[in-house]
Amino acid sequence: MNIKKLMRRAEEYLSSDERKRKEKRRYLKQVVRKLRQHEKALKQTLEECSDRDQCRQLKREIVLAHSQRKKGVTQLKALKKKK
C-alpha cells in the first residue's frame, strides 16, 4: 500500500462523517437482508396456506416487507451516491 492510499485510509477513518456514513450503510444493509429473508419466508408460508383470511394477511405482510425493503434499497443508493 503506498503512502497516499494509507493517508487516505487514515483520513477516512478519522473523519467522523465518513465513518458514520459507512456505519449507516452497514446497518441498513443488515436490515434489508433481514427483510429479504422475512419476505422469502412469508412467500413460502403463503404457498402452503389454505385458509383464505390467513392468505390475505400473508399477502399484505409480503407487500409491506417488500415496500420497506424497497425503501431501504433507495436509502442505500442515496448513501452510496454521497461518497
Binding site: 441498513l28 436490515v31 427483510l35 407487500v63 420497506q68
Partner: peptide, 22 residues
Amino acid sequence: QLKEAERSLSLDDDEVNAMVEQ
C-alpha cells in the same frame, strides 16, 4: 445504530395512506 436503521424503514403516515390506497 441498527435500531436507527430499522426506524428509518418504518412507514410514516403518508406511506401508510399510500399503501391503503394501493
